[in-house]
Computed example of a mutant assay.
Amino acid sequence: MPRQGKWATRLAWWDGKFRSLLLDLLIASLAVAMPDDPAVWQQWVLIPGNALLFGGLLLRRRFPWIAVLASSAVMVLAGSGDQSMAVVVALYTMAKQRGPVASTWGAVAVVTAAQLTRLALPNLASLWTNGTATALLGLAAMLTGFVGMPTLLGLWLYQRRDLLRSLRERAVQAERERDLLADRAVGAERRRIAREMHDVVAHRVSVISLQAGALTMTATDERTEQVAEVIRVSSSAALSELREMLRALRDDAEHPGGDHAAPTLAGVAELVADSVAAGAEIALEMPDELPETSTAVGRAAYRVVQEALTNAGKHAPGSPVLVSVDTGPDGLAVEVVNARGGGTTVVEGSGYGLIGMRERVTLAGGTLQVGRTAEDGYRVRAEFPVLEPAAAS
């Protein structure tokens, strides 16, 4: 446990603050006093009484009743107003700690009786014979100052603390409800997207896969059969990945990881081979022994190559493409360069390909560079920092 935590535990009776303990020590020390000329019986009674008063004021935040009873008793026995401030502090503490409850009103009655005993009884005869309005007003003022004011101040602070606590609880509750509503809204939106993807994208990819399979069976030449088979395999893989995305969007707890493995750096070779089988002119430069990478880096590198090859096929169909994977002491570099094409295909794009690539590379801790080459071609280069062991992912 940290040192500050230990002190907070030890000072729990003083609100965890050392200055509160010092303040109570000061108040308890000032309250312990003897009359100017005490009688013998007062000395014998007030010595243990003052000890009890000292302890009661020191622990007033935890046991306010002890402080109230001890200060009232010592004030009456001493027969002077030296302990009046101790009574004020004890009554204020009781009202602040307990609030408007029976124990607080009981303490008010005890202190009022003690003040009346100290002020009124010694002068009862004179008040009876020569009582004046001035004397009664003075007595009422003394009771108001030493009983009413500390009680009202303590009750006000109790209500203020209770109000602040209620406001904090309401703020926490409001924040919790806001987060819950936001989670519900996100969940509803995710389910809506999943439904749209299932109803539109999955259906169309399924149609492509079925048509490609039929074309494979009815192809009149070997080249058409090969291209149709590549389309069928690619569309089937797209359907598998789409199912995993739908599961993730729906938060399917029964299939947290899915049956489809996440793409890795090793999958780049197969990705290039599929594109070559579909008729693309792609050269691949990759070391024989691939380095171990984290899941995020491997996935980002694969997606960069995938998106770059897709863009090259759309914007520069038929142009040669070079895919290179380089490793070094500083990390991993993946580069895709295509020459200038003779035209574009009719396939429309969403315009978010480069944005998605940059987000993936950034989340993996890398940097992305895209732009024209000196030969008017196009280059996509992603660089990732020092490689992390695959086990770390």
Rank of each mutant, 00 (worst) to 15 (best):
251 D>V: 07
362 T>V: 05
368 L>E: 00
226 Q>A: 12
35 P>K: 03
294 S>T: 10
230 V>L: 05
329 P>G: 06
80 S>V: 06
202 A>G: 10
192 R>H: 15
81 G>T: 15
361 V>P: 01
358 R>V: 02
126 S>H: 13
213 G>A: 08
209 S>W: 09
314 K>T: 10
97 Q>A: 10
258 G>V: 05
40 V>F: 09
286 M>D: 03
107 A>S: 12
334 V>D: 02
156 W>F: 11
265 L>I: 11
44 W>I: 09
377 G>L: 00
277 A>F: 02
186 V>M: 12
288 D>T: 13
264 T>S: 13
37 D>C: 00
260 H>P: 00
375 E>W: 01
33 A>H: 08
278 A>G: 02
224 T>L: 09
242 L>Y: 04
163 L>A: 15
320 P>Y: 07
193 I>L: 15
88 V>H: 04
57 L>V: 04
159 Q>M: 14
2 P>T: 12
344 T>C: 04
321 V>S: 01
240 S>T: 12
253 A>L: 09
312 A>W: 01
63 F>Y: 11
215 L>A: 13
205 V>A: 06
33 A>Q: 10
204 R>T: 07
8 A>P: 03
65 W>I: 08
78 A>N: 01
7 W>L: 12
44 W>R: 05
297 V>K: 00
198 H>D: 13
19 R>G: 11
382 A>N: 01
320 P>N: 14
335 E>Q: 15
85 M>T: 10
280 A>V: 01
199 D>L: 10
206 S>M: 09
55 G>A: 09
342 G>E: 14
56 G>H: 05
77 L>W: 08
150 P>R: 04
85 M>S: 09
290 L>T: 03
301 A>H: 05
109 A>E: 03
264 T>C: 08
315 H>F: 15
370 V>F: 03
334 V>F: 04
185 A>Y: 10
207 V>P: 02
221 D>N: 13
371 G>H: 08
309 L>R: 00
14 W>E: 02
328 G>F: 05
270 E>D: 13
359 E>M: 06
157 L>K: 12
207 V>S: 06
205 V>L: 13
170 R>V: 08
202 A>D: 11
70 A>E: 01
20 S>T: 14
200 V>T: 14
15 D>R: 15
193 I>E: 06
144 T>N: 13
266 A>W: 02
390 A>Y: 15
128 W>L: 14
285 E>G: 15
332 L>M: 04
233 V>S: 07
326 D>P: 02
272 V>R: 00
392 A>I: 00
357 M>A: 06
79 G>R: 00
324 S>W: 01
312 A>F: 06
25 L>D: 08
103 S>D: 11
63 F>G: 00
361 V>R: 02
65 W>N: 04
272 V>W: 02
135 A>R: 04
222 E>Q: 11
190 R>Y: 07
388 E>R: 12
127 L>G: 05
3 R>D: 08
